[in-house]
Simulated scan of single mutants.
Amino acid sequence: MVPREPPDDRTPASPAFQTRSRDNIMRRIIIVSVLLSLLVACATSPTGRRQLKLFSGDEIAQMGIQSYQQMKQEEPIETSTAENRYVKCVADAIISASNPEGQWEVTVFEDDQVNAFALPGGKIGVYSGLLDVAETDDQLAAVIGHEVAHVIADHGNERVSQQFATQGGLQVVSAFLGGSGGAGSQAIMSALGLGAQVGILLPFSRTQESEADTVGLELMARAGFDPRQSVDLWQNMAEASGGGGQAEFLSTHPSNDSRINNLSSHMDEAMQLYRQAPNHPDCG
């Protein structure tokens, strides 16, 4: 009896060949699916810039709400009636000018840091330390307008999508699909651009920051706040930081000078909107 030769793995009939073929087909399907999802997910920002957005608005809003609730549990909240009324007056005017859907919640946190944030899901946080640098309601409007602009431009979705599409995808998905706390939730909060002490802060890119400056300038002008005060605000910011800071090319944020130049280049259009605004709030 002639011994039978072992099957050649390279022949189409062999199980090993068929397994490899299935694996190759699956890889190609996955690659095509990912590429199609990236193409479909392309969107346009308010300034006409192309964006990658892989998540639905509801998913991003839920991430923002969860982060906000966590902030309110962990950070002390300012109880001063005067400060809360003042911040809410400015925020309400900006929110009204942005024509948002649903109700927005505004919280003043008792903290010396000079910061504020807005999150998807209609959440705004202002740190009391900001009120020492934003000296007028117009200047505070410049900050809140900038933060609300991040939400309007869907920068949170873009940031999470970028993280998902590169190195942080598995971590983000794990946290969103049931993970609680730990590095996963910190990554989501960071990806949303939350200006808080979450251990790993990944702020918006310089492109997104500049875009938020431009859109925020328009928002504050439509709300009836003097857009020229946005330049004064960033001059105050430069003074508060001692005029120093990290070199722009090493930072994800534009330098104060770059921000001022960008704002100044859009000032004529903003002033037209300011003059046409039906109301000029007096929140001070």
Rank of each mutant, 00 (worst) to 15 (best):
T11P: 00
S255G: 14
G129D: 10
P281Y: 01
D282K: 13
A191E: 00
G156C: 09
E83I: 15
R49C: 12
L202D: 04
Y86H: 13
V160I: 15
M220V: 00
D282F: 03
I260N: 07
Q70P: 02
A116R: 01
S180C: 02
G168V: 01
E110W: 01
G64P: 11
L233V: 13
S98V: 08
L130N: 04
A212E: 02
A223G: 04
E83L: 14
A183I: 05
A61N: 15
S180Q: 13
I200N: 05
H266Q: 13
V133D: 06
G195S: 08
V215M: 06
D111F: 05
Q70T: 15
S258P: 03
P6L: 08
Q69S: 13
H150E: 10
L170R: 06
V87A: 09
I77S: 04
N24C: 04
Q197C: 02
G156M: 07
N115V: 06
G57C: 10
A149F: 09
A93M: 02
A41H: 10
E75V: 14
Y274H: 05
D268H: 05
F249M: 14
Q171E: 04
T79L: 10
P100F: 01
T107W: 01
L170E: 05
Q235C: 07
D226T: 00
S98D: 09
S56E: 13
S67R: 03
R22E: 11
E218N: 07
L273F: 09
N157Q: 12
G224C: 07
E74C: 09
N262V: 12
R275H: 12
S180T: 11
G216N: 07
K123F: 04
M189G: 02
L217S: 03
T107I: 10
P76G: 11
G193N: 02
G199H: 05
Q276E: 15
Y68L: 09
Q197V: 07
S180A: 12
L36Q: 11
